[in-house]
Design a protein around this nucleic acid. Sequence first.
DNA 1: GACCCAGTAAACAATC
DNA 2: TGATTGTTTACTGGGT
Length: 582
Amino acid sequence: MMVESASETIRTAPSNQNGVSSLSSQSDGGGGREVDLLHLQQQQALQAARQFLLQQASGLNSPGSTEIKQSPVQVPVSMAMMSPQMITPQQMQQILSPPQLQALLQQQQALMLQQVKCAHILTHTCASQLGSKQLAFQQQLIQMQQLQQQHILNLQRQGLVPLQPTATMQSLQLIKETNFIFCVAFHSHEEHASSHPLYGHGECKWPGCEALCEDMGQFIKHLNNEHALDDRSTAQCRVQMQVVQQLEIQLAKESERLQAMMTHLHMRPSEPKPFNQPLNLASSGSLLKRECDAYPEGLPHPPTSAATPITPLRQGPSVISSSSLHTHSHSHTHGVGPIRRRNSDKYCTPIASELAQNCEFYKNADVRPPFTYASLIRHAILESPDRQLTLNEIYNWFTRKFAYFRRNTATWKNAVRHNLSLHKCFVRVENVKGAVWTVDEVEYQKRRPPKMTGSPTLVKNMISGLGFGSLNASYQAALAESSLSLLNNPHLMSPPTAASLNMLHVGHDDVSSTVEQVNSNGSCSPTLSPQQYSHAVHVKEEPTELEEDSRPVSLLANVTHSLPLPSDERDLEEDLPMEELE
DNA sequence: GACCCAGTAAACAATC
DNA sequence: TGATTGTTTACTGGGT
């Protein structure tokens, strides 16, 4: 936009024919590239200015002056970019006729405005990524612009050019803003001086380079030597811009498609579309919750997180969202792809909150839930009043909760059975009604990676891994609020019993961990634990476990529910009442 | 590339 | 006898 208009201005310059300006117009990111291009433009403009001055000095000014007066555009734009450090006002007055001077200065002002705006945008978007060299250059650019501004003001004071208060003030204001932003960005850059977007894992990330650099100093040296401003680098930069542009076009298309898909899934065909605006997680979490709750029964609504990618912002896509609508490539036979992958399962999916917020959506839309079978089974079992289900009841839960599981029954039922047998955390218990399945929470926790205990870095990484890094503060606050509200709600929380402690025990990644003590009525479940059905006859044989613990697994489960936990583990719990699922 | 984990498919046995 | 349940193995693919 600004950049483009600036480049349009530059296009009027007769000397600008190497496509640099068009490059500039294409760019919208990558501060380093932009600065390099500006540098190119500047050098080019200065070169043209020198030629122009030579022409003027060689006596061409008198016949051509009328043309220049009639068409200010014919004043080379490069002239407008000339640094006052190079040409004094007195020299200008000697060289140019007053109309030429006036036209030149007007153009200079306009261009400067564009430049300042451009620099303004660049500092906004890319300053933190700029290398120190580029930052220095940009500062020089702004300095130069300030001098230009001063120069214009001098000329105006001398009555050489008419005053243009609006443009002048605008320029000054922008200069001020840019300087401020620059200062912030510069300091920010200093803080992150140890990193560079073109440097990672000990090698140069310049396209096609991959040169090994032991440290940042070596990399900087390499960068300056191998990727200095030359034709090759410029060409590579241009290619990269094309790549980025293509990706952005692709992203826009995909986002549009996603929006259309979501819009389609949100509503009944016969109804007017209530979701003509993409949901945005920039809205508060509580709002999202209200939106979820506000959906009429039977009317599917999208996963709140799934709406995230719709926004064209550069937010990190929500893991949940991407996986929610993700059909796996290796679902080769029956179209039943893996629900989700390990990472998202173990770190990223608060299943209870996701289900709570999107229950209607999953119930009605044929969208694969972004959870593993194990977590779903566990959730189903823990959601039940007795925290035990027969296989058939688990099946029913799947089909009841997810439209997706109303087809390909053989496949996913086999997977359910497979998971029940495979994972030690699922304990088969035979009671008078027959065999039921329960969850051994200890085993379930075992199969998870180390929790966020101790290391703040780890905690931070985990949170960012949750995709919450892409959420705004209000949403995170709302999540925290929902947790607190549950923990503080006497109706939802029992006194610190073993059960309630267990609520604090669970990993953050799967909020269903927190619901096992809360029955479907939304209150803390007074029901018996699986081990309280202690008349279990059959326990799944687990020789290895017995070797480890010398105790039956099923008897181990509830005993350890009351184990004390590091406080750190409790901090990140996300607790949602079970009623949200209904 | 090794390893782990999750999903899928399938064979098989036990049980209903 | 067929369906269901439960176990196990093998394979594939993604992620680390």
